[in-house]
Design a binder for these strands. Structure first.
Lengths: 326, 326
DNA sequence: CTGAAAGCGCTTACAG
DNA sequence: CTGAAAGCGCTTACAG
């Protein structure tokens, strides 16, 4: 014990917590002893005593997409910033829907965590009830719910942007490759993007024909086979909107395999603007991934430190980045 | 308190910890009460009481490379496996060298963590002393030290493999693009790869001329400008070995910009085999990234649960994956 | 087999 | 301004 400084544990605690109650001479004495012994507070005991944790939980489907990682980078940048109010970051990977509920219960009930950041995973009302019962602040990233603060993007609008871009390029026979509308994680962004896409087409007097749509699991290989079937029809599309960059890469690969030149025979536009997009020269809808993580982390810290008054939804800007595939 | 089950806290604790000392009827009664109340042990209190944490700390330079993320995926897959021996995962991002020391001191001293997994970051003797003083198991991933278990790859051998591949393709005028030998993180793999590369060339009677080497920070843009200067010399190389796939992408971009055809005018080989490599068709040295994370996580769990007897170094296999750039 | 009690390392009214 | 004491929610000898 650092009371080799000739003071009580209470005083050490006060000094280390910057209590104003300690007079300078003793304060100095304690600091000296602390430095000499390399003493540090035990965070576990502190958490228990204080009744609040110094860590935040980040619940995230770690394996699904590049974009999730990029968001996480923003979160990490903000949270382990070495600065004053650094929170420990407890990472909870969610591989399957059931795990999400488990993770949240674990984190909430056990008071391990001062707040929860939930990335890309839909949340249910009873789960929110549980969080509020435990007084656990939470913020959503890439999903939204009226009762919780969140940072999102207008995916429907993003779909419109994609349609407008393709329309402006003169296309009228257009295809779509995206996620199954119902999928095990409950992701909805692909479907939202398709809706916006489809309705913008409608407004231009063009119908997104069912024969021009393909759905599957959101990975490259699946997008590849989906695209082949799209392209091998009697009247193949001259442009394809993929619900994510990863899927767009699959589309590109199928085009290459079938000898369709991009963008001359078929134009391709993706969504997300992950680093891959720039590397392959993919035209895409850019969303601020890294920034979304930073913003969400800031919101969470604010919620932890000041409470949440009314749950803001931060809607981030979308832009089209034109590269070589359209 | 769940002693609504009519028993003491001690008994509840025993039941929840599967102590054999509790007779079946009471056990059942406690379980029923636990289920009904949705009661869960408070991990913080448990940690404090037991004197050992249920989390492991993962110290990782989160922003540096794709390969780090891929390794992390392996770690996550193993650790948050939902199974019995699931450890919480405390993520410590290290942005700068000083932070590494901070992170380790934080984690170790405060007893937050049952073990440490250190990814891609060199560690010093005095830091190891500190770990051992605290009895904190640690395993290294993508770095090695004689006193600690680790999983690595033979980077020198990898460089040789790259050289042998290029040699077999008939090249004799060969360039290298890699990291500065001394860099702030203390990464050494680029330099190790270059050494192996250079000595395999030597053995073939070919000298890696200083005018054929370029060094910089390990990112795409830097590799791009480095490559331009390499290619704009009187006698440009006909093949280039890049110390990582990311750098190889920069090399490819420079080739494109300068109108050099790949692989006809210049062949390019990378290192790592991240997903990017497959997407752009890059020939590269494959290392089992995901698996390395899984293995390291397993080693750490073993070290935590059974102690470490002698520090094994797991050396993983390297292979060349030939694609379209050589 | 079960309970009362002490202890894990902090924090914070409460006295002084 | 500082210390003694209680309490945070567990676990585990120690009795019984």
């Amino acid at each position: 014990m650092a009371r080799q400084a000739g003071v009580s544990a209470a005083t050490v605690s006060r000094v280390l917590n910057d209590s104003p109650l300690v007079v300078e001479p003793t304060r100095a004495r304690v600091r000296a002893a602390v430095d000499e012994l390399g003493y540090r507070l035990n965070a576990t005991a502190r958490t228990l005593s204080l009744g609040r944790a110094t860590a935040v939980g980040v619940v995230v489907p770690f394996f699904t997409t590049h974009s999730v990682i990029e968001r996480l980078r923003g979160v990490v940048a903000r949270l382990s910033g070495g600065g004053q109010r650094a929170y420990d970051l407890l990472l909870y990977d969610v591989e399957a829907p059931e795990q999400r509920a488990d993770a949240m219960r674990d984190l909430a009930d056990r008071n391990r965590v001062a707040g929860l950041l939930i990335v890309s995973l839909p949340i249910f009302d009873d789960e929110i009830d549980a969080l509020q019962r435990d007084d656990l602040p939470a913020v959503l990233l890439d999903v939204s719910h009226p009762r919780l603060p969140g940072v999102v993007v207008d995916n429907v609008r993003g779909g419109e942007l994609a349609a407008e871009h393709l329309l402006a390029k003169g296309h009228s026979h257009i295809g779509f490759v995206g996620d199954h509308p119902t999928n095990e994680y409950g992701f909805t962004s692909s479907e939202d993007r398709r809706r916006g896409f489809s309705s913008a087409l409608d407004r231009a007097g063009i119908r997104l024909d069912p024969s021009m749509e393909r759905y599957g699991v959101p990975d490259r290989d699946e997008a590849d086979v989906l695209t082949r079937s799209l392209l091998q029809q009697p009247a193949p599309p001259t442009a394809i909107f993929a619900a994510s960059d990863l899927q767009a890469i699959g589309v590109l690969r199928a085009c290459e395999a079938l000898g369709a030149r991009v963008p001359d025979d078929v134009a391709v536009i993706g969504f997300d603007d992950v680093d891959l997009a720039e590397i392959v020269g993919l035209t895409t809808i850019h969303q601020p991934l890294r920034e979304s993580g930073e913003l969400a982390a800031d919101l969470l810290v604010a919620a932890i430190e000041h409470g949440v008054h009314d749950p803001v939804q931060e809607v981030q800007e979308l832009t089209v980045v034109e590269r070589r595939t359209t």
